[in-house]
Design a binder for these strands. Structure first.
Length: 438
RNA sequence: GCCCCGGUAGUGUAGUGGCCUAUCAUCCAAGCCUGUCGAGUUUGGGACUCGGGUCCGAAUCCCGACCGGGGCGCCA
């Protein structure tokens, strides 16, 4: 007999024999009757045992520790005394895999646990319905993203995660021994996806881990995160690139709002689709807006965390919007981004933008400098040796189209969308400065 | 890297030098109750991170170690 999932059973199946497997969420032992609640990823069902009729089965339910895996075969019985309108009257209950007691973490206890405790026991934490849902949302978001990008002609690629050079300096690179040579974990597919523009792959995207050895210990940083990278050729300006970042965001939200209603209901959130196009706010306007909400940022200064948050508040109160671009970043602030194209008519400004969601950066990108002489000059400003970037530079010598792209923080999007206080909740097994296990 | 803060049963907490034989909830165990569904009810169980110090006396004060949380810088 094949297993049936809890969501596949209904009151209409009254009388039918079924086999279910799941975790014993709780058992209630009353005078002459016992209830066992069996849970799988889809929900719960109640198994009801009358002690007089089945003393042996009542004993098994009573003896099984919470969270043990039970296999129950029995008959579906229509009942108006249960929330789902039916229950299972078992003819067999097997404790297939017993759970030790006490549990390191309760799945349905009426006390919360600290994130650290939860992460230390992540496999149990993930049994919680509201925790598991986060990853369903993430999965749906990536599904919608792939569908959208493919529908507008992008192909999905995979670039190396072990590399000899990083895109931005060495401070944030994880060093590793590569057959006696020094290599690094990729902090970004930046150089490779640009290289692919030279190869003629005019629209590519990649969804892959990126590694940052930043000593950033915050609720929005991870040492390993999922980077959604896009790169595209023959663009007129960074506006073309922004449209795609906007499209991914919008289509993901639309997919969730329209195709995943039960999931969103379970998450307790409602998605209000953002207006298109997303508001474009220039860097200098952003400072004024942030300052109007109490930030104290001088012109030319970086917005900083405080400024970003204040800007989010300002945009919300002025226009009731939560997704917006910050454009025209000053060259002074993007100096380290040697591949960023500066505006031809005003070299003090770059073509770079951020996409912020409720006061937090989730996307960063822009048009790249594809003209070799300018690129080399910008590398020189950063004291970077082009020799070290061999394969990257070579591609610019043999026909490189105008192009641009961005990096999109998948966990950051999920975090903001679901209003999670810590980004670690948006990744199964977070890696941060202190955590390498599990 | 810098700045703040914390570590008490399995989980989450109360506790600011003697009233601590350490609070409450959850949890666990046993009992009662034929329909629970945050079940109810009775009884019971379980903890001061480690090392040093101050003091008549330390969960409480000091030092160190280890572990963790938040903020900033930076970024996705």
């Amino acid at each position: 007999m094949r297993y049936i999932r809890t969501n596949e059973i209904s009151a209409e199946m009254d009388g039918k024999e079924v086999k279910i497997g799941g975790w014993l969420q709780e058992s209630r032992n009353l005078g002459g009757i016992s209830f066992g609640i069996i849970r799988d990823r889809y929900g719960t069902v109640q198994v009801t045992v009358r002690k007089k009729e089945s003393p042996d089965l009542a004993k098994i339910i009573g003896e099984a520790n919470r969270e043990s895996v039970l296999i129950v075969t029995g008959r579906v019985s229509k009942s108006d005394k249960t929330p789902r309108g039916f229950e299972i009257i078992p003819n067999s209950i097997v404790i297939d895999s017993s759970a030790q007691s006490p549990l390191p973490l309760g799945v349905v206890d009426r006390v919360s646990a600290e994130l650290d405790t939860r992460l230390n026991n992540r496999f149990i934490d993930l049994r919680k319905e509201n925790v598991e849902r986060i990853f369903e949302v993430k999965s749906e978001m990536l599904f919608a993203t792939r569908s959208y990008l493919r529908s507008i002609g992008f192909i999905e690629v995979q670039t190396p995660k072990i590399a000899a050079v990083g895109a931005e300096g060495g401070a944030t690179l994880f060093k590793l021994d590569y057959f006696g040579k020094t290599a690094y974990l990729a902090q970004s597919p930046q150089l490779y996806k640009q290289n692919l523009m030279g190869a003629g792959f005019d629209k590519v995207f990649e969804i892959a881990p990126a590694f940052r050895a930043e000593a950033s210990d915050t609720v929005r940083h991870l040492a390993e995160f999922t980077s959604l990278d896009v790169e595209m050729s023959f663009i007129e300006s960074s506006e073309d690139v922004m449209d795609v970042a906007q499209g991914i965001t919008f289509e993901s939200m639309k997919h969730l709002a329209e195709k995943c209603k039960p999931l969103l209901e379970k998450c307790g959130i409602e998605i209000e689709l953002p207006k298109l196009p997303f508001r474009r706010i220039s860097y200098s306007e952003a400072i004024e807006l942030a300052n109007s909400e109490g930030a104290k940022i001088r012109s030319g200064e970086d917005l900083g965390t405080e400024g970003e948050k204040a800007l989010g508040t300002a945009v919300k109160s002025n226009w009731n919007e939560e997704l917006y671009f910050i454009t025209d970043f000053p060259t002074e602030l993007k100096k380290a981004t040697f591949y960023a194209m500066r505006k031809d008519d005003n070299p003090e400004l770059t073509t770079y933008f951020d996409l912020d969601f409720r006061g937090q950066e989730i996307v960063s990108g822009g048009q790249r400098e594809h003209r070799l002489d300018k690129l080399l000059a910008q590398m020189k400003e950063n004291n970077l040796d082009p020799e070290r970037f061999g394969f990257y530079i070579e591609a610019f010598k043999y026909g490189m189209p105008p192009h641009g792209g961005f990096g999109y923080g998948v966990e950051r999007f999920v975090q903001k969308l679901l209003d999670l206080t810590n980004i670690r909740e948006a990744i199964l097994y977070p890696r941060d400065r202190l955590r390498l296990m599990p």
